[in-house]
Amino acid sequence: MIAENTQTQMRKGILEYCILSIISRGEIYASDIIAELKRAQLLVVEGTLYPLLTRLKNNGLLSYNWQESTSGPPRKYYQITHEGNEVLQKLDVTWKELVFAVETSLQGRNESNN
């Protein structure tokens, strides 16, 4: 259970970061975000994505505009805001720190194991 909790928490933090990164590349549709995440082997169902996107949008990190679709209702295309970019840069820094921290501790463990 503790492992599960930690896993969930880890994935949760990374998910937001990944989504922001994907969107920062340009206007993108929700199902395309999913496709990207799947390609990155971060398994997510679409139902999880919408609350996240809504929250990021409400925090001012994202914005969207409606675009006509050939197959069905108009789609919401998301794009990153200026504020979102700032947050992303901060997250980039944090991520590098984390990677360093994790790598360092992993190294230490591997060494002690060896």
Binding site: E4, N5, T8, R11, K12, L15, V44, V45, E46, G47, T48, P51, R55
Partner: peptide, 17 residues
Amino acid sequence: SQMGKVSDFEGETEEDI
């Protein structure tokens, strides 16, 4: 299955955080 069952949302939404 693509959208995800309610059970899949667990632990991944704001509430759970």
